[in-house]
Amino acid sequence: MKLTTRRLTELALLTAAALIIFVIELRIPDLVPIPGVKLGLANIITVYAVFRYKPEETALIVLCRILLGSMFAGRPSAILYSAAGAALCLIGMLAVRRFIPPKWIWLCSVLGAIFHNTGQILAAMVLMKTAVIVSYIPVLLFTGCIAGAFTGLCAQMLVARIDRKPPA
């Protein structure tokens, strides 16, 4: 991956924006106090990057956000859950990206949310050595779809407004 100074700066800027959103969201009281259920506003940046940057660049942004974010939040144990979710989410969104027209970006984000929650559950099952967590799947998926549609819609507006050419 060739990373020019300009590109690196752009990616750093997006990472910083994602982290700011993440930290602000930490301050918002939980709408639904269930582990793993949240709006995930920082994913607005992820979805935006999926449609405007190269896959490896997007992965870099997400990786940095997760590492720094879990440190800012003071819960290093959350890294594994977030990372498992984010990895699946990213793979899912990048896989369908080429089929998604600009007006359907929100749908891509919903799919990403579904993958994200699946990854989280799998990680939790492995780490907590219990299958009980399976009962969380419906709640996580249902709320995840709503959150994904919302963040996706935000990203869709962002993509439409910032008329930057896709990666050359």
Binding site: V96, F99, I100, P101, W104, L107, C108, V110, L111, I114, I137, P138, V139, L140, L141, F142, C145
Partner: peptide
């Protein structure tokens, strides 16, 4: 493919809602 993705997401949403 887009229709398939939409159908999949719709099914997951409704299915998980009903299950819940």
């Amino acid at each position: 493919p887009l229709a398939a993705i939409a159908a999949f997401a719709g099914l997951v949403f409704l299915g998980s809602g009903a299950w819940m």
